[in-house]
Amino acid sequence: MDALKSAGRALIRSPSLAKQSWGGGGRHRKLPENWTDTRETLLEGMLFSLKYLGMTLVEQPKGEELSAAAIKRIVATAKASGKKLQKVTLKVSPRGIILTDNLTNQLIENVSIYRISYCTADKMHDKVFAYIAQSQHNQSLECHAFLCTKRKMAQAVTLTVAQAFKVAFEFWQVSKEEKEKRDKASQEGGDVLGARQDCTPPLKSLVATGNLLDLEETAKAPLSTVSANTTNMDEVPRPQALSGSSVVWELDDGLDEAFSRLAQSRTNPQVLDTGLTAQDMHYAQCLSPVDWDKPDSSGTEQDDLFSF
């Protein structure tokens, strides 16, 4: 819950932080000083300027060897085509990944977070970031790969997607708890209302004896509580940590079903599988986004697919 609360507080303090972009060759504004600060901008989305290598189908939802083989196929196909790589912007948030063309600003792909089953910074092609997700059109699994400016960037994108998945799962947990509370309150309110109706004398007997209905007592009954809980029953509950912020979080049926399955089948359902080692994760978390744009010590960066 700490990640969720800190993310909400950060967004309320400075929503404009989320509009910064990394990996864009110096076009961005001043960047936060450390990885923790940038992680807090996830709610509205972190932007990464990358190059799209392509996509291939895979048979399993996750796995280092599986993704490595898929990336190898994608890279080989991209090299064989001889075409310049498409420059894209990857927007990562707890909602998922939005992929747009840098030149036309046209939407290429919009992947809900619950469809993503794996992401990684490839070991062999260490400047490549990739994720595996279920197609929104059918049940097939797709591996999408992107060329980053350097290994640090690939690791940073991988960690960002993993963190977005974690925050999304926490949102789901909060929403589920809130819905259970509202359902319980609604049920209790309905029981109270039913009890009051059972003990209320029939209207005919009131008229016969000349008694008047006590409207004041009726007004004191917990009807307002019942209506408050039943009027918006169809509205999706939102985490309290975000009250007053500009973010509107809505959970669709697909996300609810997917996270429910994860909660039942996995020990740590909030953790998205990645190909990063503990050492890689520690190294990337210690980086400032400013470091992502620094040239690798191995030599001059080449803006070309064939540089790796």
Rank of each mutant, 00 (worst) to 15 (best):
D2L: 01
L4I: 10
R9G: 13
R9Y: 09
R9S: 09
A10F: 05
L11P: 11
L11Y: 06
I12H: 10
S14Y: 04
P15K: 07
S16N: 12
S16H: 05
L17P: 13
L17S: 15
A18R: 15
K19N: 11
Q20Y: 15
Q20H: 14
W22S: 08
G24R: 03
G24N: 04
G25K: 07
G26S: 15
G26M: 01
L31F: 15
E33T: 14
N34W: 13
T36A: 04
T38S: 15
E40L: 05
L42D: 02
L42N: 12
L43K: 15
S49R: 01
L50A: 08
G54C: 00
V58Y: 03
E59G: 15
E59N: 06
Q60W: 04
K62L: 02
E64G: 12
E65M: 15
S67N: 02
S67T: 11
A69M: 12
A70N: 12
I71A: 01
I71G: 00
R73N: 07
R73P: 01
V75I: 04
T77F: 15
T77M: 03
K79I: 04
G82F: 13
G82T: 01
K87G: 13
V88F: 01
V88I: 02
T89F: 09
T89R: 15
T89C: 05
D101T: 03
L103P: 06
L107C: 05
L107P: 13
V111Q: 08
I113V: 12
Y114M: 01
C119Y: 02
C119N: 01
C119A: 02
T120I: 02
D122A: 01
D122V: 00
K123C: 01
K123A: 14
K123S: 05
M124E: 01
D126I: 00
K127G: 00
F129Y: 03
Y131E: 00
Q134H: 14
Q134Y: 05
S135R: 14
Q136L: 10
Q136N: 13
Q136F: 14
Q139H: 12
C143M: 01
A145N: 00
F146D: 00
F146G: 00
F146W: 13
L147P: 00
C148D: 00
C148E: 05
C148F: 01
T149I: 14
T149N: 10
R151T: 01
V157A: 05
L159M: 13
T160L: 15
A162W: 03
Q163M: 13
K166G: 08
E170P: 03
F171N: 05
S175I: 04
K179Q: 13
K179W: 09
E180S: 15
R182N: 15
D183R: 13
S186D: 02
E188R: 15
G189N: 07
G189A: 05
D191E: 08
V192H: 06
G194S: 05
D198L: 06
C199F: 07
K204F: 04
S205N: 08
S205P: 11
L206V: 14
T209C: 05
T209P: 14
T209G: 08
G210C: 10
D214V: 09
D214W: 06
D214S: 06
L215A: 13
E217A: 14
A219E: 04
K220Q: 07
P222Q: 12
L223M: 11
V226E: 11
N229S: 12
T230M: 05
T230D: 09
R238V: 04
A241R: 09
W249M: 13
W249K: 10
E250R: 04
G254P: 07
G254L: 08
L255T: 10
D256R: 03
E257L: 10
A258M: 07
F259W: 03
F259S: 02
S260R: 14
A263Q: 15
Q264M: 13
Q264L: 07
R266W: 03
T267N: 03
T267I: 15
P269Y: 02
D273Y: 03
G275Q: 04
T277E: 10
A278W: 09
Q279C: 09
A284G: 02
Q285P: 04
S288V: 10
P289R: 04
P289N: 05
P289K: 09
V290T: 05
V290H: 08
D291M: 05
D296Q: 03
S297H: 06
G299Q: 08
E301K: 12
Q302Y: 11
D303T: 06
D303K: 04
D303W: 04
D304I: 09
F306S: 08
F306P: 01
